[in-house]
Design a protein around this nucleic acid. Structure first.
Lengths: 109, 109
DNA sequence: CTGTATCCTGAACGATACTG
DNA sequence: CAGTATCGTTCAGGATACAG
């Protein structure tokens, strides 16, 4: 449990993972999708996630440099975890936000 | 999702919740079970969790003062969330820690 | 394009002492 | 028993400049 929290540690980590759950992204795509993150923080998070075995860097040769970030299998297994986090938050913050019929509401895709 | 992370924010918050999932506890019982937390931090976490609607304080009159901390219904719903965190961490940190037959391993009780 | 280096600020933590 | 007050430390986060 502390392992998971360590892997997800940091204010923006879950958002990075959530974006990557939707598909691979390059560094600049990530930056465009998450404008709130400074270069340093984004870099830090990616390094941390790579260290935790959640994301993988694909550095493709040539010029200009292109790098794609993708979730590892372990990273994909975080999907249900984030879903659990989302579900609790949705339920806890009032049950009137419209359109839910019980328990779907797909936030991840 | 960010709501949940805000509610669980802090290094020790999940451990406090986990103890309370097992049943109500008094302040000193919590302190005894979580010796790593200073009074200040424990106090901070309980206030934060109360603010988030996760725990409830039962202040019982008389002397000496007795207070029981209990999870709200919302707090009990965090059980599956913590379970998801635990499961991922267990899976991610190597599959050789003995005795698991697939997907049980009950850490919470 | 994809990052790293540096510096600064604010928040969380931790220990100790003290109050109702 | 059940906390709050205060203070010092540590660490993540944010901005900017620079490098491969």
């Amino acid at each position: 449990m502390e392992i998971t929290l360590a892997a997800l540690h940091g204010r923006w980590t879950t958002l990075v993972v959530r974006e990557l759950l939707r598909g691979d992204l390059s560094y600049s795509e990530l930056r465009a999708v998450l404008p709130a993150l400074s270069d340093k923080v984004l870099s830090d998070r990616l390094a941390q996630l790579a260290e935790a075995g959640v994301v993988e860097r694909d550095r493709r040769p040539g010029w200009p440099p292109r790098v794609r970030y993708a979730l590892t299998p372990s990273g994909h297994r975080l999907g249900p975890v984030l879903q659990a986090l989302w579900d609790w938050g949705a339920e806890a913050s009032g049950r009137d936000s419209g359109a839910e019929s019980g328990h779907e509401t797909n936030p991840v895709h």
